[in-house]
Design a binder for these strands. Structure first.
Lengths: 217, 217
DNA sequence: ATATGTGAATTGATTCACAGCG
DNA sequence: CGCTGTGAATCAATTCACATAT
């Protein structure tokens, strides 16, 4: 069982997501056991790192043997909170919002799209990915009714803070922010930025400074 | 002028991108000077952090005064390599690839879309964002002809490594990888992952572990 | 007087080496 | 004997305090 640790590097959480992807693939391929060595190669980190990352949460392997793939997969899912389904709403049904709503891997086992919201009256009522777009004024009600936990912000940068405020007001617990701007939220709401323009600008820096290698979180 | 430092934390580069966005907004609003204090508040970091981040690259402020907005904007752009235009190709014109091609902020000052590639014969020849989709077999030629520097990978996860190989083979210098998988490239090619599914799973973890606050790189 | 720039101190993360178990 | 699990050592990043410049 677990430690329930007081502190975990956020880079560890990012890596756990990668490890989960790798063991899930192994499991689908019918592989029964694996090792920190193998996972390290696939995730492009050191084997030490893998063992240390897992050690924050407990002991999941067998000494001399390695890890049992289905067990490790299940344990990492439990650590990441992927034993339950998360219900998601998208605020801003432009091209990005619509592409995300239709993204086939999105209806992952763990995430379910439950609402689409926009301010534009021309969009409200339209059907996207089998859901009717609602006006943002209905957010509070539908978050409550549908038990929505997570909101995507896919509005233009200037509208991002308003979208965040609306989501917070509606009682959402986490936000995936696709807008290229820092948003302010209360301490208890978590925000993950997904900012490809920022990624591009980091790329630009590392291309002109090839001697500086980034270690990716 | 600059230090040209041997080592810079990658978190510093991410923060510089944020600072750039903030000073650009200030400049557009006609503000002439600012301070580490103000930038800190906007970027949600400490003022120490801002001054230290900038100090890796030189001295850009005036003691007792603060920073001159247009100067700081220009200097951060120079640091990030945004004094030149970067030419971009998109590999994989599915929903995400198409949404990116049409994203209005994409034709930023510094990035220019120069090629769209796919393997699907049904897509080749179609016009998207004013560009004709080419077959991936034409990548080498067009990267050379168009002077393309950066590739986006927006193909399904299983095709991502092949897309990466094709881009590397064509002589690309940097990759923005939207596929949820770790790709292998030679040391001299830089990869930035843009993985919203990973972001969602990190969110899941931080929602069920609210006592653990992430400090965002 | 005021806000930057920076060495020193502290805190945090990664690497290592090997103890612990199967 | 092999591979995990983990305290200790190293390395890196952030915070601090204040000297410095205007």
């Amino acid at each position: 069982m677990a430690h329930d640790p007081r502190t975990v590097p956020s880079a560890t959480i990012s890596r756990l997501v990668t490890y989960l992807r790798i063991v899930t693939q192994l499991e689908q391929g019918g592989v029964r056991t694996t090792s920190s060595e193998y996972l390290a190669k696939e995730a492009q980190v050191s084997a030490f790192q893998i063992r240390k990352d897992l050690a924050y949460f407990g002991r999941f392997g067998t000494r001399g043997e390695g890890y049992t793939v289905p067990t490790l997969r299940r344990e990492i899912e439990r650590i990441l909170g992927l034993t339950r389904q998360w219900r998601v709403a998208i605020v801003g049904v432009g091209r990005i919002g619509e592409a995300l709503a239709n993204y086939p891997n999105f209806r992952d086992y763990h995430f379910e799209l439950k609402g689409l919201f926009d301010l534009d009256p021309a969009k409200v009522g339209r059907l996207v990915a089998g859901l009717e777009i609602k006006h943002l004024s209905e957010l509070n009600r539908l978050v409550l009714e549908q038990g929505i936990d997570i909101g995507f912000i896919t509005v233009p940068p200037k509208a991002a803070q308003d979208a965040a405020d609306a989501l917070v007001q509606a009682g959402i617990k986490g936000i995936l922010n696709f807008a290229p701007t820092v948003i302010e939220v209360p301490r208890e709401v978590h925000v993950e930025p997904v900012d490809f323009l920022a990624g591009l600008k980091r790329l630009s820096f590392y291309i002109i400074n090839p001697q500086l290698k980034e270690e990716l979180a």
